[in-house]
């Protein structure tokens, strides 16, 4: 079972590549009642302790496949299911220090059966304090 909030505690960690810490990861689950095609999602921003990341600083990993946010806009046949947390990987040299961090994740998505104006309303900002060990 997943944790109730959008921002999951499990999975919060730094990411290493070639022996260097290049960023951090946080898992999110969709709070919408139905899964989403990746092209329905609008690019996310992630704010950690007041510093905001966006665009190509963030990738999404869903079912073990990693996507740039630019790629996702064209992927109308890849689906983010409700039981599958998405891993957001944020590029931040040196990563985060051990301890508490204020995390904010913001994204919206289109919903074709609501009036078009709603496409910029559904979704929004999720906040949670997470502890990196």
């Amino acid at each position: 079972m997943l944790e109730r909030p959008c921002i999951q505690s499990r999975g919060f960690k730094n990411v290493e590549s070639h022996g260097k810490v290049i960023g951090f990861q946080v898992n999110i689950r969709s709070l919408y009642y139905r899964g989403l095609w990746l092209s329905q999602l609008r690019p996310a921003t992630v704010t950690v302790d007041g510093e905001t990341f966006s665009g190509d600083q963030i990738t999404w990993t869903i079912n073990d496949v990693t996507y740039t946010q630019a790629e996702m806009a064209e992927l109308g046949d890849v689906h983010w299911g409700l039981l599958e947390p998405a891993t957001l990987t944020v590029a931040k040299e040196g990563g985060l220090e051990s301890g508490s961090h204020e995390i904010e994740v913001n994204y919206t998505y289109s919903c074709s059966y609501f009036p078009p104006v709603v496409d910029t309303i559904l979704g929004g900002t999720h906040k949670r304090t997470l502890i990196l060990v």
Binding site: R34, W37, S39, Q40, R42, A73, E74, G76, S110, S112, Y113, P116, D119
Partner: peptide, 9 residues
């Protein structure tokens, strides 16, 4: 199920 007519922006 859905026909997501605005699947692509």
């Amino acid at each position: 199920h859905w026909v997501d007519s605005r699947l692509y922006q």
